[in-house]
Design a binder for these strands. Structure first.
Lengths: 334, 334
DNA sequence: CTGAAAGCGCTAACAT
DNA sequence: ATGTTAGCGCTTTCAG
């Protein structure tokens, strides 16, 4: 490895002069600067980022911690984060916790002091008490798309207005004429979506019997299984709101397997708008999370902290919107 | 930040003694070791990984470079790599190049010397000449799932036996009775799949007219568009092999949109076996790439190099296998 | 068993 | 404009 010292010797100059020339700081005569740059080029010099970091107390890398990148909800977001970070000269480390808090704690411990300048923590990938612990020690952290039932006191965060998302879903279904509804939801992590949904029903004087609130765990399989049991009832609901696209997709599968047509016999609406949702049959009507916005807002919040411009504002919210496709229809069919 | 020096002062010992106690190396009396450990605990000491790396010439992180994590083919692989790396005490940096070689070059330059101990490079995310350049300078590199038409001379790599994959697809279709075939392929990157496919036809004395070899670019959209034009023909093929699941899914959509039934009117087979393929309608029959195997083999190859046990073996190949689902059927329908 | 000292490659005052 | 020096936090000889 060729160091600035090597090229100092080669040019007969001092280390610091070389450093100045290379970094563009300080003052170096145009002549010697040229000489140094050329020499560096010839010798194949590359700055040692680790050494630089040690000296700088700055690593130019951030970490994104999430449950699992295999969940199709995340890749787009991560990519947008990476892109934005890159524009700030930062690289991105991603860490899957696989919903294992202990695992998440270890990962974060390891990254602490040294490896990264800040964290974006997504989903429910970590124990909130661990996070606040780190945050109180002035580690830049932003929560992104955090589980909706918790109130992580004072930590910068950007999230989706899930209550509103639930409302949008309910509104859509009611407008189509449905009155016999069911929701599949991962409680308590998705309680806001549920609450938003119910709030609209309530406003119209409707309610949902407890047995029509079904527990899923956000996976496609859980959506399938739960919906399957639903379709065994004598009088299944005419419309289902799945709090996650993956569960909605599972529900559609279950419906088709049960010999029902979607949307003719049952309408199904999801929440997320992951890539595949547009490409299943029927294409899924869903409440879309604006992923790019989410990612960019989170990244900017993080850099604000890293650059010390931190003002702990309240949780930032991004607005979801309805994406009409073909898994929902009027009831009764007209 | 509390350093070993801080805890040295606090305990009245020397820096190096503390270092020894903390690392378990050297010799420290049980009594003082205890004292040091406890003190470290109390003061909330965390080793500074960057400093350690500088001293060690070892960063304990590897980079995975790929075109885009948004392609559903990658997340599973990346996760497996991350997992395996973690077992070796390594963390994983992921870099999307977005198929932009220049971008890839820059990223790699930045990581060079300092940030990572090695690279796993996937897909056609980088210019091969850049890669060989780095490799010749003894940077540990392994190519994973590399584009099949190139022969990256001597660089360790693990790939899928795509020729065989193409054969499996052809065999399946022929066994079902199909004789009027088409393939959608991203040439030249996927030429091996195509060659394997054609080799089987040839062995049976069959051939494929040029107009039945359609160019796609591995995206769902391209599969859709290409298949759409195909279905406008008077006598469309009875079976299609799409060299990528995403293109196959697009082809299925095109078929359905054209009023054709899959598999009754047209059989469609993919290659990859991404997660969603099992969940579209009809579920996609495909040639599966063993992703876990691929990831593990690549990671092990990389660590072999990092640990200096490198013996440049020939390209390692993993075997694909057929996954029967419901997008293909006998012809004529029985 | 413990301590002193040098060095990893780079930065940043401060002197010359 | 260039050089000297002292770190950054840790590892690793080598003495005491």
């Amino acid at each position: 490895m060729v160091t600035i010292y090597d090229i100092a010797r080669a040019t007969g100059l001092a280390k610091s002069t070389v450093a100045n020339a290379l970094s563009g700081k300080g003052t170096v005569s145009e002549a010697t600067r040229r000489r140094i740059l050329q020499c560096a080029e010839e010798m194949g010099y590359r700055p040692n980022m680790v050494a630089r970091s040690l000296s700088n107390h700055k690593t130019s890398t951030i970490a994104v911690i999430l449950p699992t990148i295999s969940n199709p909800f995340y890749p787009e977001i991560v990519e947008a984060i990476e892109q934005t970070a890159l524009e700030h000269g930062y690289q991105t480390l991603i860490c899957n916790t696989h919903y294992n808090f202990e695992h998440g704690r270890l990962r974060m411990e390891r990254l602490r002091s040294g490896w990264v300048d800040g964290y974006i923590i997504m989903g429910s990938s970590m124990d909130i008490t661990d996070i606040t612990g780190h945050f109180q020690q002035d580690i830049p952290i932003v929560l992104c798309d955090w589980q909706e039932n918790e109130a992580p006191q004072g930590i910068p965060q950007v999230s989706v207005d899930f209550f509103r998302a639930g409302q949008l879903a309910a509104q859509h279904l009611l407008e189509l004429g449905h009155r016999d509804l069911a929701v599949i939801v991962d409680d308590p992590q998705q309680s806001l979506r549920q609450a938003g949904f119910l709030s609209i029903l309530q406003a119209r004087g409707l309610s949902l019997p407890g047995k029509r609130i079904l527990p899923g765990n956000s996976t496609l399989e859980s959506g399938y299984n739960v919906a399957k049991s639903l379709f065994k009832e004598e009088q299944p609901p005419t419309a289902i709101f799945a709090a996650t696209d993956l569960m909605a997709i599972g529900a559609i599968e279950a419906a088709l397997d049960a010999g029902l047509r979607v949307p003719e016999d049952v309408s199904i609406i999801g929440l997320d708008d992951i890539f595949v949702s547009a490409h299943i049959r029927p294409p899924l009507t869903t409440v879309a999370v604006p992923k790019l916005q989410l990612a960019q807002a989170a990244t900017h919040l993080l850099f604000a902290q890293i650059n010390g411009e931190a003002q702990v504002s309240d949780a930032q919210l991004v607005e979801p919107h309805l994406v009409l496709r073909r898994s929902t229809a009027t009831y009764p069919i007209t």
